[in-house]
């Protein structure tokens, strides 16, 4: 009956479904006759189940936008983009491979000093709290931009303008004051005709120039931020990455011009 004798190799074969059907009965009999082999088999089976159980949750996680963007081809390309933009895109997505065919490294998420990360996190938190509020997203509405920015400027100590983002389809809803790291930030909310909301978060920032994009590890809206000359800004929203970058760039230019800072 027993065509062959079994060894501990067969434990792995059996566990991985590689043992031929007609050998299984003999294998079972061998296990029963060898308690140490049976114990081993049970232990491996338990470790296996634990391993599998540990990672099944990953299948249900939402796929990060940066991964689908690669396949759909709407990840920003490096070529032909303005310099400040190239930096942000490189830091955020490492899309180098899209054109050049070679990736700089598997992990280069260099966000620079921690203060930008913190600012981007606060901006995302403010966006998630207030942009989601259908009825009362702002404290002061945008019907009188001069009044709004006057108030926000006074409270944040920054020279602020409300960027006009209508070319991008976004209208100013209004603004409010929100907490910043050790200070106060201005949050200006915009909406487009489809009801998408984005926010422009402005606060005092570091003097070191830094630019980039940020998304919480769990996903959610993306922040495109920069810090420069004591001025920090993040544009937050859930838009296709390329679109959000365009809007952010526009807002960035206008805020800099409004504050009388030249673009570096």
């Amino acid at each position: 009956m027993n065509a062959r004798s079994f060894t501990d190799r067969d434990i792995h074969l059996a566990l991985d479904g590689e043992l031929p059907e007609d050998e299984r009965a003999a294998y079972q009999a061998w296990l029963e006759a060898n308690p140490d082999m049976k114990a081993r088999s049970l232990r491996f089976a338990a470790d296996n189940a634990a391993l599998r159980g540990l990672f099944t949750g990953v299948l249900d996680e939402p796929v990060p936008a940066r991964l689908t963007a690669v396949v759909k081809g709407d990840a920003p390309k490096r070529k032909g983009t303005p310099p400040w933009w190239r930096m942000a895109a490189a830091a955020a997505l490492l899309v180098a491979g899209g054109l050049g065919g070679y990736l700089v490294g598997a992990s280069g998420f260099g966000f620079g000093p921690d203060s930008d990360d913190r600012m981007a996190e606060l901006a995302i938190a403010a966006h998630q709290t207030f942009a989601a509020d259908k009825n009362r997203p702002v404290e002061v509405d945008g019907s009188d931009p001069a009044y709004l920015t006057g108030w926000l400027s006074k409270r944040t100590g920054l020279k602020l303008v409300a960027p006009d983002l209508s070319v991008n389809g976004f209208q100013l809803l209004g603004g409010r004051l929100v907490p910043a790291e050790g200070s106060t930030a201005a949050l200006m909310l915009y909406a487009d005709a489809q009801g998408n909301r984005i926010s422009v978060y402005v606060t005092t920032g570091g003097s070191e120039l830094s630019k980039g994009t940020y998304t919480l590890a769990g996903g959610g809206p993306e922040a495109v931020y920069w810090q420069e000359k004591g001025y920090g800004c993040a544009v937050v929203g859930t838009l296709p990455p390329a679109e959000l970058r365009l809007v952010a760039k526009d807002a960035y230019k206008q805020l800099l011009a409004g504050a009388g800072l030249s673009q570096s």
């Binding site: 940066r66 396949v71 491979g97 598997a106």
Partner: peptide, 17 residues
């Protein structure tokens, strides 16, 4: 998690090329 997703991203980029 981030390193893992970086690996996936590298893989997708290479696959598309």
């Amino acid at each position: 998690r981030d390193s893992a997703d970086d690996l996936v991203q590298d893989c997708l980029e290479r696959a598309l090329m």
